[in-house]
Computed example of a mutant assay.
Amino acid sequence: MGIITGGTRQGHEPELTGVVIRSSAGHLLVAVDGTIWRCQMRGRLKRGKRQSQTVAVVGDRVRIGAQDPHAEPPRGVLEEVLPRTNRISRMAARRTGGHVEQVLMANLDQVVAVQSIAEPRPQTGFVDRLLVAAERFGVAGVLVLNKADLPEPADQKTMWDYFVSMGYKVLRTSAETGQGGPQLADLLKDRVSLLIGASGVGKSSLLNLVEPGLRLRVGEVTGKTGLGRHTTTSTELFPLAGGGFIADSPGIRGFDPWAIAPRDVRDYFPDFAEPQQACRFRTCLHRDEPVCGVKEAVAKGRIPRWRLAAYLSLLGDLEERAERLGPRKRP
């Protein structure tokens, strides 16, 4: 990441290639060979109707023109966003009507879903939806359960163990005691990772644990709502001393995956792959169809009921969105 490709167009400023480490309101910080450039977006990139909320996001490889390389920091202008290898994205705020994509990060190796054992309680269905987005775009998914120094209800442990049985890495940590810190550092080493979760679960605290030099602001859970206060206001990418990069993101409480048709969502639940072979109909959505292999697996206890409920909730939301957009605008 952040390599100079060099080059100068005749009559134009030198061109460089770097990686976006922060993006906010048309202003970017771009890492180019160890130097941070402050860049503005070229006007032509802002024109016209866009399907995505932001032109360039954290993790994007971009081409910039050097306007004032001797300023502190050096200043440039964004010329082009280079093709992405993958991304993690969701539907932007529902007031957009499902027409706008919010890309949280591009060109990453793994997304790390951070949940807390308690204070606040884990978000029902959030992890399932985030992992669907990861499966959709070919990004590895990791689960981190923070505040492991607090008592863990038995039903929660059973739930997290089920994710382990599907092949996902699940790590228990405590920013308070240091538990799991070395293991988390090892998971992040030499990878480009995005930490995502609700406010108050301890994302920034965990980053301070594995990379003390970051000194990120830490918030607390409010007693009135049981939810956390935002301390991270925008996604930012940080280099890790041991190798790799980590992006800390603002807390989010909901996740509606982008670019998934309702008929395809079942394919991103890997635990459904084998039992759905027994479905009578190839188009079975595992809802009210007769002879459904997935529902039979639930009845026999091979798939937990909460897992099917998470799938059906997401399916319903995607169908509602598809209905609003109409057949020509569906992903």
Rank of each mutant, 00 (worst) to 15 (best):
V57W: 02
V57Y: 01
V57L: 04
V58Q: 00
V58T: 13
D60V: 08
D60P: 07
R61M: 10
V62Q: 02
R63G: 07
I64T: 00
G65K: 09
A66V: 05
A66S: 14
Q67S: 14
Q67H: 14
D68V: 13
D68H: 14
P69M: 12
H70V: 11
A71V: 08
A71E: 09
E72T: 13
P73L: 03
P73W: 03
P73R: 01
P74D: 05
R75G: 04
R75L: 15
R75Y: 10
G76A: 13
V77P: 00
L78Y: 00
E79W: 07
E80N: 13
V81L: 05
V81A: 06
V81D: 02
L82H: 03
L82P: 00
P83M: 12
P83E: 11
P83Q: 11
P83L: 12
R84S: 06
R84Q: 06
R84V: 07
T85S: 14
N86I: 07
N86K: 03
N86C: 05
S89M: 08
S89H: 06
S89L: 03
S89C: 14
S89P: 03
R90V: 10
R90A: 10
R90F: 07
M91Q: 14
M91I: 15
A92S: 13
R94I: 12
R95P: 01
R95S: 15
R95T: 14
T96F: 15
T96A: 10
T96C: 07
G97H: 10
G98A: 08
G98K: 02
G98I: 05
H99R: 15
H99S: 10
H99D: 08
V100E: 11
V100R: 09
E101N: 08
E101M: 11
Q102E: 15
V103H: 04
V103C: 12
L104R: 01
L104A: 03
L104V: 09
M105Q: 12
L108M: 14
D109A: 07
D109Q: 08
Q110A: 10
V111F: 02
V111N: 03
A113T: 10
V114I: 15
V114M: 02
Q115L: 12
I117E: 01
I117T: 13
I117S: 01
I117A: 05
I117K: 01
E119Q: 15
E119G: 00
P120A: 02
P122N: 08
P122D: 08
P122T: 11
P122E: 07
T124R: 13
T124S: 12
T124Q: 14
G125F: 01
V127W: 01
V127R: 00
R129F: 03
R129Y: 05
L131C: 10
V132F: 07
A133F: 06
A133G: 15
E135A: 13
E135I: 07
R136P: 02
F137C: 13
F137N: 15
F137D: 15
A140S: 15
A140F: 04
A140R: 14
G141T: 08
G141D: 06
V142S: 05
L143H: 05
L143V: 12
V144Q: 06
V144P: 01
V144Y: 04
L145F: 13
N146D: 10
N146I: 04
A148D: 12
L150I: 07
L150N: 04
L150A: 09
P151A: 06
P151F: 03
